[in-house]
Nucleic acid binder design. Structure first.
Lengths: 233, 233
DNA sequence: CTTGACATCGAACACTTGTTCGCTTATAAT
DNA sequence: ATTATAAGCGAACAAGTGTTCGATGTCAAG
């Protein structure tokens, strides 16, 4: 089952309750107060829903702290907190804004070429799109896709497990491009790409590591890395 | 002896601390947090002072409720609290459009603490703001800033020369936070932060590297890392 | 029909946080 | 010098609050 796009009714009720509770009491509610308000009898179910809201970036939580809940901007937007006059200003500025919505297509790991990940271009879960300002990456939405790194195999590229890699469809490379390559038919790796004579040098991003020199026929370029994103909080 | 007309210095400090704590955390502080901030070692002395502030109509308290403290109008008048600033409105505009505009404040390297980078909050070059979808990072524009990494000193954090680090103002850390710390008065580093007994474990992001175990007094947390961005093309 | 993901639940537990107690010290008034 | 009041203190305790566990139910996909 794919992740649901929208919040459940319960989760919407939780956000609304937290908001009205804060206005009334000048502090966030407790887990138990939320449960009482939205008719959940178990603190672990409240906790479960708050965790979902946190994952969807509606809430921020501080662990092991009483009333350790706060709203994100996304939550405030959902709640319609912004005054109408500010909304009018928003309308004027919005036309100038460029947001790219880039599909998060799946995972990249050490042992799977991109083709098997990329088999279906035409649809993806809205929830898993990456939104980036167009000023931050060159390219059009149609040419870009995102992959989440699965495992430690990209560490030599300074890319950690869980990082998101924004890529551009490309099967050729120029000197200095960071590319995803399918190497010798069994390994995916991210490296800087250089032609050296009739061979190819694949240079790790980590400057303390040695390059690989290979014959061109064992290298299949599968995309160019445009950006790496790491969410640490 | 008649009751003193004015507040003691300690009571004024308490009110100021509660105010700044609320702005930073979106919730009131605990009795213990107040004590720590105004150098009172006993919860009963904090309680005594809060009772005095309540008697003088600066505070309202809810009994037997965590963080059950709120300000009266008299307290707000004392603190000089004003309506939302222009900056708050600007932040709300950006949030409403789904974009966060985060100031790029300068560079972070091995040998410069954040204070010297962050000395001037009031202005920054519009050109150097990082625009990010609000769905991608928790927080409000006011609390976030970006720094560009200068040099190879953050490699153990899987952060390369030229990467951009999105940070949140924060001088405390919770277990598991990735933080920027000023270490032993001469080194800036990015690490995962854990309390271990009465010491602190600073864990590199690179899973092949060993942690550092240090005494708390040689560590100054200077911000929490929310996201790392690497532009490779 | 089976399986896996999501959601719910009560209970127990761990930890946080507020309150109370008995005492000591500081200070101002007498 | 004495007394009353204000302020401070550590410790213990009570209550609040968040987290975890093992279990069950629902529903969509296969």
């Amino acid at each position: 089952m794919a992740k649901k796009k929208s919040l459940s009714e319960r989760q919407k009720n939780i956000l609304s309750f937290i908001h009205s509770y804060r206005e009334e009491h000048d502090r966030p509610p407790t887990i138990r107060e939320i449960g009482a308000a939205v008719d959940i009898s178990s603190t672990s179910v409240v906790n479960y829903n708050l965790t979902r809201l946190e994952e969807r970036k509606y809430l921020m939580r501080d662990a092991e702290v009483s009333r350790g809940i706060s709203f994100t901007d996304k939550a405030l937007e959902f709640l319609g907190v912004v005054a109408d006059s500010v909304n009018d200003a928003v309308g004027a500025v919005a036309a100038d804004m460029g947001l790219l919505k880039i599909p998060l297509r799946g995972n990249i790991g050490a042992s799977l070429p991109l083709e098997s990940v990329m088999s279906d271009f035409s649809s993806y879960d809205e929830e898993d799109a990456i939104e980036i300002s167009s000023s931050m990456v060159n390219g059009r939405s149609q040419d870009l896709f995102a992959l989440r790194v699965d495992g430690d195999s990209m560490i030599d590229a300074m890319v950690n497990d869980g990082d998101i890699v924004i890529m551009k469809h490309q099967q050729t490379a120029n000197n200095g491009d960071m590319v995803a390559v399918w190497l010798e038919g069994d390994t995916m790796t991210l490296k800087y790409f250089f032609y050296e004579g009739d061979q190819i040098r694949l240079q790790p991003a980590n400057p303390t590591m040695d390059p690989i020199i290979v014959d061109p026929e064992v290298v299949q370029v599968q995309g160019k890395v445009m950006m790496v994103l790491r969410q640490t909080a």
